[in-house]
Simulated scan of single mutants.
Amino acid sequence: MELPDLARRDLGGAVVTANDEAFAARQNLITPGPAVFDPAAFGPNGKVYDGWETRRRREPGHDTAEIRLGMPGIVRGIVIDTAFFVGNYPPEAAVDGLTVDGEWVPLVPRSGIKGDAENTFAVDQPRPITRVRLSIFPDGGVARLRVHGEAAPDPALVAALGTIDLAAVEFGGRVTGCSDGFFGSPNNLLLPGPARSMGEGWETARRRDDGHEYVEIALACEGTISVAELDTSWYLHNAPGWAALSGWTGGEWRELLPRTAIEPDARNRFVLTDAPPCTAVRMDAYPDGGMARVRLHGTPTERGHAALASRWKDAS
């Protein structure tokens, strides 16, 4: 599964500075979803682009934008998306990252990029990153900057909170497998805040056999789940009829919640008594349908806290 984009605006990301945004605003870089293009859209500064675009340089130098990530994380890959920028994209770009201890380190060296394309780069940097700096040479437009990775929360913060949503992407939860995502990505299940429409959840195609759908979630760390919330908000006529939960513990899947009827357009909450410590959870949805969010409220174990502390220091 694709790792979360740690820079997304709806995860708390923000473009804090840019040396120039004469043609298109810097905040467009982290807008969720693909860029769009209206060939008839012109404004007082010229053609309107859904991205960040600087003026044509007439002196030496290059342009930069600095992005604060929504949460610290281990960056695994970066996408410099130049969608719809054809004659005005930068021919080269680089990305640096700011570590949790305040050091700028290279993530993507200065590299050639193509116009109207998703320029993808693998990243090998084990230290948690809090900010990234996009440099374009010498100028031009970039539609989106995606910073894919695994959240690495401050272990002191997690310890102070006590009970957390172990599935939340902001703490390091991530989807590792699913049966189907025809109408909506399963990654939406772990996003912060409530879904604002049916389009912000996970929804499968209609099944025409006797099977069912599932999602597997790697928890932020090993923890004991006390309350599970299966939120079907906005899914009035297409929510699953039933759901079940299993936890990965001791090298096997163990039942946390037996197959149970759930209500449509509701935050279905279940108290899990005597749940064993788990590192992953599988949700089975019967037979198909959509769900807005999955929340797995619980407490990290001692081993879970140790894993978070190790990741915070160095993920290598």
Results as ranks from 00 to 15, higher is better:
Phe182Thr: 15
Ala122Trp: 00
Ala285Lys: 06
Ala266Cys: 15
Ala243Pro: 01
His297Glu: 14
Gly290Leu: 12
Gly61Met: 05
Gly251Tyr: 01
Leu296Cys: 12
Ala83Gly: 07
Glu103Thr: 08
Ala122Leu: 12
Pro39Ala: 14
Val271Cys: 12
Thr279His: 02
Asp180Pro: 10
Arg131Met: 08
Ile30Lys: 05
Ala266Met: 11
Trp202Gln: 08
Arg208Glu: 13
Arg9Ser: 10
Gly184Pro: 03
Ile225Trp: 07
Gly223Phe: 06
Gly149Met: 02
Val100Met: 04
Val36Arg: 14
Gly290Arg: 14
Ala218Cys: 09
Thr224Gly: 08
Asp284Val: 12
Leu308Gln: 08
Arg57Trp: 09
Val16Cys: 05
Asp20Arg: 02
Phe121Ala: 00
Arg269Gly: 05
Thr204Ala: 04
Phe270Cys: 12
Asn28Ile: 08
Trp234Thr: 09
Pro287Ile: 00
Leu219Val: 13
Lys47Arg: 14
Val227Gly: 04
Trp253Ala: 02
Leu257Trp: 09
Glu263Cys: 01
Thr301Ala: 15
Pro60Met: 07
Arg9Val: 01
Pro34Asp: 14
Gly184Asp: 11
Tyr235Ala: 13
Ala93Ile: 02
Pro109Phe: 11
Lys313Glu: 13
Ser185Gln: 11
Gly12Thr: 02
Tyr214His: 10
Val271Leu: 15
Ala83Pro: 03
Ala280Phe: 10
His148Gln: 11
Val169Lys: 00
Leu272Thr: 04
Glu170Cys: 11
Val100Leu: 04
Glu150Asp: 15
Met1Gly: 06
Ala40Met: 12
Ser197Asp: 03
Ile164Ala: 01
Pro153Asn: 09
Arg282His: 11
Glu21His: 07
Thr301Ser: 14
Ile74Thr: 04
Ala24Lys: 08
